[in-house]
């Protein structure tokens, strides 16, 4: 008697879960009037050290979850199981340090740097961008090789 109840509970829940949630259909960002996100820095093909400076620019206002605003997930090689969260400073510099989850287990070499704009509830907002970068050894520091300001950066202003 109890098993049918359990089975039907899970079936109902699966149906409900299938009804909604993430819409990670989009890979494009610009155009069509929808939300957009782009990687301003580093430039595509740049060599980056760890830590490195990241600048993203989005059409949406960024903020922590409790503000109801969007935020950006940063990860490598399309693997969004571990990611850095950018939830402030749209268009400003963010330092991605060695202890960032996005860099966990990342070997030096060529990688794809992904950013994904997310709704406040963490579902995909329909705007993603990616560039190819070459990651140097950890501790090699600095910003992208072709950028002007290496040191004396302002402290990162993302907050947890």
């Amino acid at each position: 008697m109890s098993r049918p109840l359990m089975v039907s509970s899970f079936a109902l829940a699966l149906v409900l879960a299938a009804c909604g949630g993430d819409d990670d259909t989009s890979t494009a960002s610009e155009g069509g009037g929808g939300p957009s996100v782009e990687i301003v820095e580093p430039a595509g093909g740049a060599e980056i050290g760890v830590p490195f400076t990241l600048v993203v620019d989005s059409s949406e206002e960024l903020g922590p979850t409790d503000t109801g605003n969007h935020h950006v997930h940063v990860y490598f090689d399309g693997d969004d199981s571990s990611y850095e969260v950018i939830e402030s400073g749209n268009g400003e510099e963010h330092e991605i340090t060695a202890d960032s989850p996005a860099l966990e287990g990342l070997e030096p070499g060529e990688h794809t740097l992904n950013v994904s704009l997310r709704n406040a509830d963490h579902s995909a907002a329909g705007a993603d961008a990616e560039i190819t970068v070459t990651v140097g050894e950890a501790g090699s520091g600095g910003s992208p090789s072709d950028d002007e300001n290496d040191e004396s950066e302002e402290p990162p202003d993302y907050d947890y």
């Binding site: 509970s9 899970f10 109902l12 829940a13 699966l14 409900l16 879960a17 949630g21 993430d22 997930h73 969004d80 199981s81 571990s82 990611y83 850095e84 969260v85 989850p101 996005a102 509830d121 963490h122």
Partner: peptide, 29 residues
């Protein structure tokens, strides 16, 4: 967020996705 919990690693879903999915299961139950 962004750092997978042991449950997230076990299931391969992010913690936010897991929370939402199990939230629906709980609602159904």
């Amino acid at each position: 967020e962004g750092r997978p919990s042991p449950l997230s690693e076990l299931t391969g879903q992010s913690d936010a996705e897991l929370h939402t999915t199990i939230g629906w299961v709980f609602t159904g139950v």
